[in-house]
């Protein structure tokens, strides 16, 4: 069997190394019967398109963020609710347990199965104006968000002006003031050079969105039980590699930008932010009441 895989990152990135590790393990464990050709750096299309390609079956594997899966799989969109997780440890606990299983079951109905959860850290706000310590600091700020109603709702609820701008244009937009700020994790903040033009990083950690190593559901179910198990094992092992590298990478990026003079601030009082999210939760759960138990399950995972 030969499968084809998609990954958006360049060589050397934790996810790229993780995906290559997965391919290597699969080849080893199957004694060369099963091989995977990885297409890195997003050469076969952007993330939403690649998700569609795996669902249709043009590709068999992809490393996706659960963010862009949200519009397709409602249950996955719960992970895009701001402050749904307290911290990364909480997210791991939930995803490796019942929450992850429920979301995976919902994804399978849309043609995707997650074999393992990869890390993408926590996203925080950064801007070129001032440190953010309370919601009022965001009021009136133009903040770049990803394309999802939940993210733009989040910024609006904080009194900011959400601007959906293409990822590649964020640097220029920050530099020239088309937007005042954006939000992302350490590695992106550092590697895209955003720290050069937006020098205040405030540890809001408002979004902790995991990633999946996803496969096409029917291609996976067609395999003999033993091979399915082999793939899951390889995926889990590769996730350990990716999670370790990710932690290293975060530390590296954080050190680098702090050395470069970025003003980093913790947010001691997160409650005002969480309270401000109430309208976002109300609107979302009002439209999707069936998701309330899942949100409760996450909140109650301790």
């Amino acid at each position: 069997t030969e499968w084809k895989g998609w990954n958006i990152h360049k060589a050397g990135y934790p996810n790229t190394v993780g995906m290559d590790k997965f391919a290597e393990l699969v080849e080893q464990k199957s004694n060369g019967d099963f091989s995977i050709k990885m297409y890195h750096a997003g050469v076969l299309g952007n993330q939403p398109d690649a998700i569609e390609q795996v669902r249709i079956g043009g590709l068999e594997i992809g490393n996706f963020s659960l963010g862009p899966i949200g519009p397709i799989v409602k249950e996955a969109n719960v992970l895009s609710l701001p402050f749904v997780f307290d911290d990364v440890a909480h997210m791991h606990k939930a995803m490796d347990g019942a929450v992850g299983d429920q979301i995976n079951a919902a994804m399978e109905k849309k043609g995707l199965i997650s074999l393992a959860w990869y890390d993408a850290g926590a996203r925080s706000f950064y801007n070129s104006k001032k440190p953010i310590t309370q919601p009022a600091d965001i009021t009136g700020m133009k903040v770049r968000v990803m394309n999802n109603d939940l993210y733009s709702g989040m910024v609006s609820a904080l009194g900011g002006n959400p601007s959906p701008i293409a990822y590649a244009e964020v640097y220029q937009s920050l530099k020239t003031g088309v937007v005042d700020g954006a939000e992302n994790g350490w590695p992106e903040y550092e590697s895209m050079g955003h720290f050069e033009v937006a020098g205040y990083y405030s540890l809001s950690q408002h979004l902790i969105i995991p990633q999946c190593l996803c496969v096409n559901a029917s291609a996976f179910r067609r395999l003999p039980e033993a091979q399915q198990q082999m793939l899951i094992e390889a995926a889990q092992e590769s996730a350990q590699v990716q999670r370790n590298l990710w932690a290293q990478r975060e530390a590296f990026s954080r050190d680098k930008v702090v050395k470069a003079g970025v003003k980093l601030n913790e947010i001691s009082e997160k409650e005002p932010f969480q309270l401000a999210m109430q309208p976002v939760y109300d609107k979302y759960l009002g439209e999707n009441p069936e998701l309330k138990p899942l949100v409760m399950l996450i909140k109650n995972t301790k």
Binding site: E52, R55, I56, P71, I72, K110, N147, N148, D149, S152, P164
Partner: peptide
């Protein structure tokens, strides 16, 4: 195939 999900920020089917 795309009808099930909405285009973000526009609210019409993909």
């Amino acid at each position: 195939f795309k009808w099930g999900s909405d285009i973000p920020l526009l609210g019409v089917p993909e």
